[in-house]
Design a protein around this nucleic acid. Structure first.
Length: 773
DNA sequence: CAGTGAGCGAGCTTCCGCTTGACTT
């Protein structure tokens, strides 16, 4: 007989709580939800008021059986799942599936894991909140209806196996629209004019910027001419105090952002490391939308700050969550023990822990006090003014520990220390430099900045940010890529020693690192969905249904009513779209082929993005060509398409044989002496690669091939021992054979090789990414 | 492996949110 059985959601949480509760309590974990809608079918009975058809999935059967057995023997069962919509539903599913009884089942909640909080919860049990449960059922059913009715339309109208959903489709939309904004963006340039002055002592320089940028070169030159014999006088000095406050401790989303900005971690990587830290007991729960810290954590932080930095640096504070739709079932992410500055583990874990520690500690520290000084400098020959600004830190406060990063890629930290100056003081001009600067488009999303945007829109939850980002990449809607920048020319005009000189310089622009780009399929699917299901793709759709879920949660709306109101018009739209909409292949007609006069178009074909000259109905067949990597249906020009039809292209002769370049099933390649040599997309293009470079590629590949060979045999020159990615293997007649571990690749004999060949080639790789049933 | 781009149609794909391992290569 067990006195008390407590069920929580996470096993790590279970073991912590067990310590607080003592031997009369057995604490177990449900490992999240224990049942869900049927996997294969819709799982919702549309004839019976949307009645959900729940099943316990196979992987949960074992844990359910165990909990059932324990619950039967327990005097009291405490359902201690999280205090939010999903947590309440978990408690209810447990109640139903385990066959619990009302009189000995108690529902308790706590949103911080401290002894006090848990004991207080035990003293204040309640019963299951069915309104909250119904809000969750509505959420679950709505997501299923949307996902399972939209996806099949895409299978019919675009491509099989695609998917759509309330969260993922909006995430893709953000990326598609940002990409189009970027393409529509026209950069303009203007001249930023910086003056470098010397103070009387000629020891320190003062950097000042002209108030307004100058649009064109001629005006810039005219301005510099005016400055040639001018005098420069300090006309005003304004000093203003300012302060900076620390950021709140981490939530899942802000942790993902900062780990990306400061440590370069992907969203998935951050979560995996945080999970490890959590399981080792080093940090609190890592999937949270709350910035709340427990009283004891605030106390611990104070002790640490007093000891490490002194009283001036301590400033305990409690933060309020501003995030849309936050459920706040947990604390913010923080070290479990704030006095622990270092942990055992891998370097990456240590780095992430350090970040979490700094952010949490800094959040409990004093504001930084700054003093901003703005100096206005008059020019005797013209009314324009130079402005020098500087910043002095009067007290570092939390900045001693932690500075939050931003996503701004073009940040210029011009705030510097200024030497002492007086109003009326004359300054000596060292030189003036006018540099041509360009406006830049909005940045492409990174994984982390996309998470930030989704959170702002109230779309998705801490537990789904990382999976959503991986889903939209897996479906091929979005790719994470680096892109090389292009060289751009800019002008610089300098006035020094009364002389004006001009020069042209070059800089790289538009380079991207680990950014999210939409694919052709991503754009086509997005356009299709936006066209036919505008309301669901609306950025405010989630926010508005969340409001309705809230109504259900307080009991003022019946959940099936809400679903019905949504589903009736939605389903009608699904039916109409299925019946009436065209197949969507993203076709764009670019113009006419100057040679034949036939129309030139691009679209998605059976094997991906392609270009076509002529209609399929024409007497002579249309001509086809695949698009190159990096080209997009959305943006490719007629010229670029016509270039594609120049392939295969003969480049020249090498060793008396022709080298030609083309694009095939596996990308661009060179062909020489009936051997193939892949071209790296982005590095060499089959349209432009020259003979010299082609020969270089062929010779490099030959050397690589040479190095791969570990051993050959005089008995049969076709039989080779090669060095592969996973070690040595045997190659013969275009088949590869695994060498048994009992035989060393170095001493293998010809006889042994023949033995291996007799046993047949190594099996083809099994299909990935699918769990067999 | 490297020329494709059509059509027929079996059987399959798919959502969002809670949670962790157990599996290859």
């Amino acid at each position: 007989m067990i006195e008390n059985l407590v069920i929580v959601e996470s096993p790590a949480k279970a073991s912590t709580i067990e310590k607080f509760l003592g031997k009369d309590y057995l604490v177990k974990s449900s490992f999240g939800h224990i049942r869900d809608l049927e996997k294969k079918n819709l799982g919702i009975d549309l004839e019976k008021d949307y009645s959900p058809q729940y099943i316990v999935p196979d992987e949960k059967k074992k844990i359910v059986a165990e909990l059932k057995k324990l619950a039967k023997d327990a005097r009291t069962v405490w359902l201690a799942s999280d205090e939010d919509r999903e947590g309440e539903a978990i408690a209810w599913h447990l109640f139903e599936v385990l066959g619990l009884k009302k009189d000995n089942t108690k529902r308790i909640v706590f949103n911080e894991i401290t002894k006090d909080a848990i004991q207080k919860a035990i003293k204040n049990p309640r019963s299951i909140d069915y309104n909250l449960v119904n809000a969750q059922q509505a959420r679950r059913v709505l997501d299923r209806l949307v996902g399972f009715e939209l996806s099949p339309i895409l299978w019919k109208k675009v491509k099989p196996s695609l998917s759509a959903g309330r969260v993922q489709s909006v995430a893709v939309r953000l990326i598609v629209e940002r990409e189009r904004e970027i393409h529509a963006f026209k950069s303009t340039s203007s001249f930023k004019v910086n003056a470098h002055f010397l103070t009387d002592e000629k020891k320190t320089t003062v950097l000042a910027e002209l108030e307004d940028k100058i649009k064109i070169r001629e005006h810039t030159l005219a301005f510099l001419k005016k400055c040639q014999n001018a005098q420069f006088k300090v006309s005003d000095i304004v000093t203003k105090p300012s302060k900076k406050s620390p950021a709140p401790p981490f939530t899942t989303s802000t942790l993902q952002q900062e780990a990306s900005r400061k440590l370069g971690f992907s969203v998935a990587q951050t979560m995996m490391l945080a999970q490890k830290l959590y399981e080792a007991g080093n940090i609190t729960y890592m999937r949270t939308d709350s910035v709340n810290l427990s009283e004891s954590a605030i106390g611990m932080a104070k002790t640490v700050i007093l000891k490490e930095f002194g009283e001036k640096y301590s400033f305990p504070r409690q933060y309020k969550t501003k995030t849309k739709g936050a459920q706040e079932a947990h604390e913010a992410i923080r070290p479990t023990y704030l006095d622990k500055t270092d942990i055992a583990g891998a370097t990456s874990e240590k780095k992430l822990y350090d970040l979490i520690w700094k952010r949490a500690v800094a959040s409990q520290m004093s504001d930084a006090a700054l003093e901003k000084t703005t100096v206005t400098i008059d020019i005797s020959s013209t009314p324009e003014k130079f402005i020098a600004s500087g910043e002095v830190m009067k007290f570092d406060g939390f900045l001693k520990v932690y500075i939050e990063s931003t996503d701004d890629e073009h940040e210029e930290n011009s705030e510097k220390l200024l030497p002492p100056m007086k109003i009326g003081q004359m300054l000596n001009l060292d030189y003036i430099k006018a540099t041509e600067r360009f406006t830049h488009h909005l940045p492409r999303y990174t994984e982390a900045s996309l998470v930030k945007k989704l959170e702002e829109l109230g779309i998705g939850r801490p537990s789904t940010y990382a999976p959503t980002i991986s889903t939209i990449q897996q479906r091929g809607y979005v790719v994470k890529e680096d892109r090389e920048g292009t060289l751009r020319e800019y002008q610089e005009i300098i006035l020094k020693n009364q002389q004006i000189t001009e020069q042209k310089l070059k800089e790289t622009t538009g380079a991207e690192k680990a950014k999210l780009f939409p694919s052709d399929i991503g754009m086509i699917v997005n356009d299709f969905l936006v066209q036919h299901f505008k309301d669901i793709l609306d950025y405010n759709f989630t926010a508005s249904v969340e409001k309705e879920f809230d109504e259900i949660a307080i009991g003022s709306v019946k959940w099936t009513k809400m679903i019905d109101k949504f589903y009736q018009p939605f389903h009608k739209k699904v039916t109409i779209t299925t019946e009436t909409s065209e197949r969507s292949v993203g076709e764009r007609i670019l113009g006419k082929d100057p040679e034949s006069g036939k129309p030139v178009m691009v679209r998605i074909g059976r094997f991906g993005p392609m270009a076509q000259i002529g209609e399929s109905s024409d007497e002579d067949k249309p001509r086809f060509a695949g698009l190159l990597k990096g080209q997009s249906i959305d943006t490719i020009s007629l010229e670029e398409v016509l270039d594609l039809f120049k392939l295969p292209r003969v480049i020249g002769l090498f060793e008396n044989k022709e080298i030609s370049a083309s694009v095939g099933r596996f990308g661009p390649y060179l062909k020489h002496d009936s051997k193939f040599y892949s071209l790296k997309p982005g590095q060499d293009s089959p349209l432009t690669v020259n003979l010299e470079r082609a020969i270089e590629i062929i010779q490099t590949k030959r050397i690589e091939q040479e190095n791969k060979i570990l051993k050959t045999f005089t008995e049969d020159p076709d039989l080779k021992i090669l060095k592969g990615h996973w070690g040595a293997y045997l190659a013969y007649n275009k088949n590869n054979y695994k060498i048994p571990k009992t035989i060393s690749a170095e001493t293998i004999t010809f006889q042994e090789c023949q033995e291996i060949i007799k046993n047949g080639p190594s099996k083809a790789k099994p299909k990935r990414g699918k769990k067999s049933k």
